[in-house]
Design a protein around this nucleic acid. Structure first.
Lengths: 350, 350
DNA sequence: TTGAAAGCGCTACCAG
DNA sequence: CTGGTAGCGCTTTCAA
């Protein structure tokens, strides 16, 4: 048996099976040293033009691409970052992910995606992350103190996306949830609304809590006491369910509904129109939060607060890259204001 | 002030900072050889219980995780696959990506994401892919013959998602676009519709072409000649623009509009209702394609063909994994039928 | 069952 | 500017 490569059971008719071309192969063909080949692929190395031409010719003829895996073993830089995101079906996150991916790609960084079903699977994702030697992590999920400590122990740069830990020194990029919520409340109250319903978000979402709390606080500040709040989960369905819950709780539907995100606001509008025969905004004003694509579809034209996703992802990417270049940079939080979108789903004072 | 590191509490006495713990560190602490440590982390290796306990204890105390990068250098298996997707903001792809990610994750495989803006950036993505030694690739974008040849040369398993190359022997998982389109046309014609408008998709989308072609063919087979088709780009906006184009082309709006995807169908419905004062489906029937989330929102309740995304991604993942285990498996195509969703956006014969 | 030793493909540091 | 030489952290023979 030609002992050399029995590794792959079916390599039978494929002797040079899958063995990728290495810098040695290129060196041999080009008649130079292997280190010379390596240098030619390192930007800004000192190589003579003649050498470079020879090597590149050989490399192209062989279809050589440097093995990034092997490289990262020495350089301690994998040029890989992990992005942890909790639910991609959320309408909001695809845009975030798309932008992150693009911006990392522009900087020559690859994205290892961890799309978690629930925030429960975070621990497993983190274990993978440690094993894959990523240079840094963007987390759009909550982490436990222990998990956070692990990041510090391992000295692994981390930037939170829309997870704000008031009490902790971590890097984060957020949209100012409270400010946006206050703005929405101001407008609604200025329009003369007095009776409010609020549809909340998932128990484990910090963002949902912030929006909810700020909404409540501001309403109270403005002297509004008639508030019915129910829970939700960010989904379209929970919007309709929320309306029903509110109606059951108080026996009628209040004149203003605040939802902690656009998707549930859209669900609420549809339920009001199609299940409760209410007109929006004539009978009921509805506002959302996020500014996702469907929020400005003609059927909804939602009054909402848009998160400046592009600027936020840009900030997150920049911040992470800075931390990767220089791990001793002190933690920083960047908070962006939302952009008030005056749609027609809510009455406004004229 | 101890200027250096206020950030990392424990990096203080750690000048060579961030050097991860290796199997050698574990070996030293456990008082065993490095190879023993390696074996303990290899499932199904022959290690005595005593040894395993010792090693695991040391590993845990040090927070050791094997370096997957180093491992893959020897094993020639990175447990990394690349997923190339063209536009994530498409409503349809987030679901696909989410499922793929989950299913790969369940099999212990990590996903390297390439979210392309346009299909133009494919070449750059491929170069990265070669460098990162992924075990396989799922492509939801079109590849040139040359790029395809490159996959063969490199012996890199590839599965297309919804890109069907009739003439080529490649692995692919698709939804039967033509069948779905014919089904929709049948229903529309059975309901008595005679005048049709069609809003197409992006020039470079094979799927859009297939749907369009099948729609046209079937209409003609059924003796319908009154067809106005315009171009689109899968977006919400192009739905409205398409309606306007059709109106301009023929001077009126036909009684049935077929859109090559849900999003443009939704845009068309909104335009019909809010810009043209038409009732859907009373005045105009509209159908879409995909079965994305918003298609069953009460405002639209679209008649459409849903792609069985879960089954398709499952098939794609399985197919890719099989090819990775055994690269000599012959190419295979799996074509799934779409599921007809009878919404209320189109009149149907009773 | 265990340990020693030989690399995987590359970069980085030397001499020349 | 170029070529040799040492590893990065791991898996995998091969002997013991």
């Amino acid at each position: 048996m030609a002992g050399k490569n029995i590794d792959k059971s079916d390599a039978l008719n494929d002797p040079d099976n899958a063995r990728a071309v290495t810098s040695y192969d290129v060196a041999r063909v080009a008649g130079v040293s292997q280190s010379a080949v390596s240098r030619c692929f390192k930007p800004g190395a000192s190589v003579s033009k003649k050498m470079r031409d020879k090597v590149m010719k050989a490399a192209n003829s062989l279809g050589y691409e440097p093995n990034a895996i092997a490289r990262s073993l020495l350089t301690r830089r994998s040029n890989l970052v992990a992005v942890i995101i909790s639910n991609l079906t959320n309408l909001y996150y695809p845009e975030v992910l798309s932008q992150l991916s693009q911006q990392f790609s522009d900087r020559g960084i690859r994205v290892l995606l961890f799309a978690l079903e629930g925030e429960g699977k975070t621990e497993a994702a983190l274990q993978q992350i440690w094993q894959y030697q990523v240079d840094g992590v963007i987390a759009a999920v909550k982490l436990t103190d222990e998990q956070l400590a692990e990041f510090n122990r391992r000295n692994k740069p981390l930037v939170f996306y829309n997870r704000f830990y008031t009490s902790l020194a971590v890097n984060a990029v957020c949209c100012d949830q409270a400010e946006g919520a206050r703005h929405l409340v101001n407008d609604l109250v200025a329009a003369g609304h007095k009776r409010f319903g609020i549809i909340g978000g998932p128990e484990d979402s910090v963002v949902a809590h912030e929006r909810m709390a700020a909404t409540m606080d501001r309403l109270k500040e403005l002297g509004i006491a008639d508030i019915t709040s129910v829970s939700g989960d960010y989904s379209y369905e929970c919007g309709g369910a929320g309306i029903e819950d509110i109606r059951l709780k108080r026996g009628e539907i209040p004149e203003a509904i605040i939802c902690v995100n656009d998707l549930s606001a859209i669900g609420a509008i549809d339920a009001l129109r199609y299940s409760h025969s209410k007109k929006v905004p004539e009978d009921v004003s509805v506002v959302g939060f996020d500014g996702v694509g469907p929020s400005n579809w003609s059927s909804y034209d939602l009054t909402t607060v848009r998160q400046p996703v592009g600027r936020m992802t840009d900030a997150a990417v920049t911040m992470l890259m800075e931390r990767i270049e220089n791990p001793s940079l002190p933690p920083e939080k960047r908070v962006f204001s939302g952009i008030m979108i005056e749609g027609t789903s809510a009455k406004i004072s004229e």
